[in-house]
Amino acid sequence: MESVLVGVDHSEDSARAARFAIERAAVHGGRVAIAHVVYWSKFAFPTTVENEARPAAVTRERERAKAETLDPIAEWANAEGHLETVELVTKVLHGRPSEVLSDLAETGDYDMVVVARTGESHLRNAIFGSTVDRLVRHASIPVVVVP
């Protein structure tokens, strides 16, 4: 059974990528894991106020990702009846998206990664290269880029 990893953010493009992966899996039957990676660096320089509020902020970020991206995708899949053939799991993670997705790819649990070509524009991505670009260069399994 094929297992696909989808990386999503808050953008509509990435929701489409997730739907593409689910529809494709629905045809043959398979597993789809949808990962929302919240940008986070352990080497950041936060302020005292940010540090103090961090535990609550983490919870908020997880809930927001779940409510705004992961739950709607799961609801759509359910409404379309795809969940009968597709085994769907969702997760919210923290880190640099390209790195977290590469790490997940390397666990050997997935056969390919699906991502949208453009996602949320992010200042850091603009400076250091986009998530997709880095993922394509670093991932150890095939990467499908959905336009």
Partner: peptide
């Protein structure tokens, strides 16, 4: 992961 790391706590105190 995602919480206040040792580096971040040190960086905040240092700044």
């Amino acid at each position: 992961v995602g919480e206040v790391s040792h580096f971040q706590a040190l960086a905040t105190a240092l700044s």
